[in-house]
Amino acid sequence: MRAGEAAAAAGVTIKALRYYEECGLLSPGRAANGYRDYSAEDVRLAEEIRGLGALGLTPSETRPFLACLRAGHETGDHCAESLAAYQQKIEALDLLIDRLTAGRDRLIRRRDAAARRGFPPVAQNPMKEPDEMLPRTDSLPQADPLPSGLPAPVDDGGAAHLPGRTLPPLSFTGTDGGDIRLDAVSEGRWVLFCYPLTGDPAADIPEGWNEIPGARGCSQEACGFRDNLAALRAEGVDRVLALSSDRADYQQALVDRLHLPYPMLSDPGLTLADALRLPTFEADGQRLYRRLTLVLRGATIEHVFYPVFPPDTHADEVAQWFRDQRDHRHHRDA
């Protein structure tokens, strides 16, 4: 059957089928005209990947289940290897729950201790702007410093086509709980930065991650935009958003851990990358966003930062770009 028929039968998108094929999870045949010819087994495998994904397993983690189905079993977990994959994921989740619970308990103790101490009177300014209400950056948790010697990415031209393009009408649910449609974020200036992944705190980073140019530094970049948010707003930036292929629960854990004051958007299918031909790369069987930052005016891309390096000081670079733009306008109008 054709891709559209197979996707509809499996309850996935055509792009998802293509991604499963890129990961080596599906191997459809070819018809005489060269088009992919999906079999009933391909549909069953795609259904299995989708069902396991709803349970939190990544496509690469579904391999034992797919092998079990290919071996002729009625269900994908009728094999010992599948049970072992279940157990491995459960242990990773248990570790994450333990870490989050311990962090929650520490926060409760600190909150209660602060409440018992009471607070000195503070003069309130009714005209205080929202930017002044942002938390002091010196009191916020910080990501670990980046290791030295990380390889710098080179400009491969993967973003040269983006200035002047219009964002597609794609909607994502942000970590703030709201549905955000990219082409309707703001009529003014705003910033969208894309990053590869922060991943599961209970799992190791992909093998060779530090050797991939520009891959390491997502938490550090996120902290940088948090700490520069007031400066960006002072330059007329309405909003800052972050987007990656991370699952929403991973992003929420990052927001909670680092006290990020802006929404993060989960795009596991890399739909924005496909719509705008954004640069991506492969690591550990996953297709990921390359790090880049878009400056937008309304839905139109005004400027692109690509490649981004080093990520821990990138937000300072973006804030300085806005200041330079302001100075250039003042000089021009003088």
Rank of each mutant, 00 (worst) to 15 (best):
R189F: 01
R189Q: 12
L170S: 04
A202L: 08
T166I: 02
G164S: 02
L167R: 05
T173P: 04
L167I: 09
A202N: 09
D204W: 02
G178A: 14
F193T: 12
G164T: 07
P201E: 10
A203G: 01
D183H: 02
A184V: 01
R181Y: 03
G208V: 03
R165A: 13
G208D: 01
P169Q: 04
A202Y: 11
R165T: 14
P163N: 15
T198G: 14
G178D: 11
A160E: 15
D179H: 07
W190S: 12
V185H: 08
L192Y: 11
T166M: 12
W190D: 14
A203C: 04
G199I: 08
S186L: 11
P168A: 11
R181N: 00
T175V: 01
A160Q: 11
F172Q: 02
G199A: 13
F193R: 11
G174W: 04
G174I: 04
P206A: 00
V191Y: 06
L170V: 06
H161C: 12
H161R: 14
G174S: 00
G164W: 06
L182V: 12
D183V: 05
S186K: 05
C194T: 12
H161P: 14
R189C: 14
L162H: 06
I205H: 13
R165G: 07
A184L: 04
F172S: 06
W190V: 08
I205Y: 06
G199R: 10
P201S: 08
G199E: 06
G174R: 05
V191E: 14
C194F: 09
R181H: 01
L182D: 08
A203R: 15
